[in-house]
């Protein structure tokens, strides 16, 4: 049986790749995808701990995280479409209307 540490380290690697993508890419769609990857890495951690402690709470938590991720993607992409109607760009640097 694969130790839980391996899953945790894989999850840390995926989370880091997602965070680097959020920090270094400027396309809003790719930033969305990286946020989804980060959420999924946390899901992997929760499921690994759920097996480790033989407890179903982690899996229930993952279920809710999936619902929140779906809601986040729907609303976020709607905001992105609404913004693209105005400025014809998906560059995240152009989303500065609300800057002070």
């Amino acid at each position: 049986m694969v130790p839980t540490n391996y899953y945790l380290i894989l999850s840390a690697m995926i989370f880091t790749i997602g965070a680097v993508g959020v920090l270094s890419r400027r396309n809003a769609l790719i930033i969305f995808m990286c946020v989804e990857m980060m959420l999924n890495s946390v899901n992997l951690t929760l499921i690994a701990f759920s097996r480790q402690w033989d407890n179903l709470n982690g899996q229930a938590f993952v279920f809710i995280v999936m619902a929140v991720a779906a809601a986040e993607v729907a609303v976020g992409l709607a905001i992105l479409i609404a913004h693209t109607h105005h400025s014809k760009s998906t560059n995240i640097d152009d989303v500065n209307v609300m800057k002070w």
Binding site: A60, A67, A71, E72, V75, L77
Partner: peptide, 20 residues
């Protein structure tokens, strides 16, 4: 938890419709 998730998904659906 399940009920809260369903309400969240409903609100997200309406919000996405309103925004897009």
């Amino acid at each position: 938890l399940v009920e809260l998730a369903s309400v969240l998904l409903l609100v997200a659906l309406l919000g996405a419709l309103l925004l897009a």
